[in-house]
Design a protein around this nucleic acid. Structure first.
Lengths: 202, 202
DNA sequence: GTGTCATCTTGTCAATAGCAAGATACGATC
DNA sequence: GATCGTATCTTGCTATTGACAAGATGACAC
């Protein structure tokens, strides 16, 4: 791949995206500089322009890649809504740089073709999970409403987690904390007796 | 206030913050430039530095102002969790610029004194609402868990709304949509008949 | 009136984004 | 194997920005 470091880099596009991920994870998207990325990749300051046009182009590619990765993560998770919710939070924490860019459309070109397609795939993966509510839950009367609520709660939790706004008491395991939060949205029904609504989770 | 346009502006600090809000609402925080704000206020390019030190200083002030406004909005809303949740979303949509900066700590100095105090006030206002769950709901077994779930769902909904990621079918009334979403987290218990869960809202 | 200080200005430097024009190397075609 | 077309990368340039330094201005207390 990058064995020959001659005139041609070999895989500059990928190297720039990887460097961008590192920079964003360390200092946030505001600190991103095309020239810095070029330096890290060992190329001249104008090389990135050929692959991405401008800064927004690079971030568009990064966001599209993020939506692809999210779709994969969701589809790879278990079938029910709880598993997918945890996978959503897990993706956000594990791919912080992608996630932070994806939902900041002022940084890129939201109507770019590649991005629209990738976002569509992620959206499909998100909604397809709603069909399978957690075990024992009755079929939803309003799947789209359930999907919006589920998306909101996992997205909010992930965002708050990433921004460091959550109090320390929440702990340091995002998956476990996410599971508890999602559980409150779709509590298990009282399995044996179909009586009045059970109290909240343990 | 700004009647005299002599050497001294009169209220430059507030004028710069107001201009920053306009710019961020139009083009996002990435497009913010101190020199542009100075031009809009009719002062020299170095004038903002006296009031805020640097760009991060201005955004710190903006974030602190945002947390203050949020605390006011939450305390001014009705007492129960549903009202406060709607107020939270309403604040995010109505003060989009403040909100977008508040939860982007890489843009400012999160440990600035004024900011920590303001954030604390907003946090208190948020949690004090958990004591009063929506009407008829049994006392929560885990108020902090309820608070985290409620914060997550309203924050997520607000963020998704602002980022334009929600599908058109959600409508154009954030308050109404937020109410429905929050309702799913704290559904009213089936008051008259303890039968099967009632169908969702219209 | 005088001194003091907050406020604002001009001037400067380093870094960045973006564009233009040219150099280099890869690969298809003959 | 030689040649040509093209993708890739470089150098050079301009405009803009953030940040700093030093000085000018005016408000206010005394």
């Amino acid at each position: 791949m990058t064995g020959t470091r001659g005139y041609h880099h070999g895989d500059l596009r990928r190297a720039l995206l990887a460097a961008a991920v590192r920079v964003i994870e360390e200092s946030g998207p505001a600190a991103l500089s095309l020239r810095d990325l070029a330096r890290r990749a060992g190329v001249s300051h104008a090389a990135p322009a050929h692959h991405f046009g401008d800064k927004a182009g690079l971030l568009t590619a990064l966001a599209a890649e993020g939506f692809e990765l999210l779709a994969e993560a969701l589809n790879g998770a278990g079938g029910d809504l709880l598993d997918r919710g945890v996978a959503y939070v897990d993706f956000a924490v594990g791919h912080r740089a992608h996630f932070e860019v994806m939902f900041r459309p002022d940084l890129y070109r939201p109507d770019a073709e590649e991005l629209v397609a990738a976002r569509q795939r992620a959206g499909d993966a998100l909604h397809s999970g709603v069909a399978a509510l957690p075990e024992g839950r009755p079929t939803a009367a309003d799947p789209q409403g359930d999907a919006l609520a589920a998306w909101s709660i996992v997205h909010g939790f992930a965002t708050l987690w990433l921004s460091g706004a959550l109090p320390p008491r929440v702990g340091d395991d995002p998956r476990a904390a996410a599971r508890e939060v999602i559980h409150r949205l779709f509590p298990k029904p009282p399995a044996p007796v179909p009586g009045p609504p059970a109290p909240a989770a343990p």
